[in-house]
Design a protein around this nucleic acid. Structure first.
Length: 300
DNA sequence: AGTTGTGTTGAAGA
DNA sequence: ATCTTCAACACAAC
């Protein structure tokens, strides 16, 4: 699942490969994932794929950045593509050829692996390179915005701070947490509080900080908040360094697995021994989502 | 073979 | 307002 480190990995790769390239064409077999946003509120324009295709044609990618789990491609003519990969979507870069209804990678390699074959959207760039979106569950969204409208949209403005931003200090983190209520895991995953953390990294961060995911915010000591803050930065930075996790569907844009699985301590490790204290990792539900933790070193 | 779990986000329901 | 549940969708594992 692409969370902050996976999205960052993708964005860094895209900068190297498609910055300053222009779109020649776009193909999809699932037009529902594409939307044209317009007007002051960014309403969804009723339209069809041909509109989208026409508007994208010959637009040049000028700037590529990330906000939370969103990939943002700023284009020429004051347009911007906003891509959210949701659960199983991941962008891939390479060459494909249509082979009776399916896009087949032009050469052997990682792009041929099953997880990378659910291509439902494919852009062709002006140098022939292609940008594909493989998305098994088809939840991913690609929206075309007016650049200025996007910047003042709820989609961007409602997001909390970037956890790795230089000016996001411990004091600020504490302030952001203090007036929230609920369990720490839920709050960490709330994109309006902090942007980019999902189920995997919230579990990993809390294990690292030795804080139980069910602990209520108001019962956290300053010391615990500091440990969560430090763990958050440490884990996210580490994950970016190794190009994210690939326990499920995420792959880097070359179709390769990220390296974080080696460092994954609790997520989907129910029944295994805690690498710190040998107690058995437990799994529970918090707000309908799975939460993994060590009952011994993450006491309530 | 039918049921359940998967996890992000926004919308609908309470 | 604020909380919880569910739908979007496809597949693996049970």
């Amino acid at each position: 699942m692409p969370e902050l480190p996976e999205v960052e990995t993708t964005v860094r790769f895209l900068r190297k490969k498609v910055r300053n390239r222009a779109f020649i064409d776009v193909w999809t077999d699932f037009a529902k994932m594409l939307q044209i946003r317009q007007g002051s509120t960014g309403q969804v324009k009723k339209g069809n794929f041909e509109d989208f295709r026409k508007q994208l044609k010959n637009k040049k990618i000028q700037k590529i950045w990330r906000r939370g789990k969103n990939i943002i491609l700023e284009l020429s003519c004051d347009k911007t593509l906003l891509i959210h990969q949701k659960l199983t979507g991941h962008l891939l870069v390479g060459y494909w050829i249509m082979d009776n209804g399916y896009w087949k990678p032009k050469s052997r390699g990682f792009l041929g692996e099953k997880v990378n074959t659910y291509i439902h959207l494919l852009f062709t760039m002006d140098n022939g390179l292609m940008l594909g979106l493989s998305d098994l569950r088809k939840f991913a969204k690609v929206e075309l915005w007016d650049t200025e409208k996007l910047k003042e949209s709820k989609a961007i403005l409602s997001l909390g701070p970037e956890p790795l931003a230089k000016d996001f200090t411990f004091e600020k983190f504490k302030e952001y947490l203090k007036n929230k209520k609920g369990k720490i895991k839920q709050v960490l995953m709330n994109q309006e509080v902090i942007a980019g953390i999902g189920n995997i990294y919230s579990d990993e961060i809390l294990w690292e900080a030795k804080v139980n995911p069910c602990k209520e915010i108001k019962r956290l000591s300053d010391k615990e908040i500091k440990k969560i803050y430090d763990a958050m930065r440490k884990i996210l930075e580490k994950a970016i360094k190794v190009q994210g996790e690939s326990i499920s569907d995420y792959r880097t844009p070359t179709g390769e697995r990220g390296g974080f699985d080696k460092f994954r301590k609790v997520y989907r490790r129910e029944g295994e021994k805690c690498s710190r204290c040998q107690a058995v990792i437990k799994k529970t539900k918090i707000g309908g989502r799975s939460a993994h933790f060590c009952p011994k070193c993450q006491t309530l």
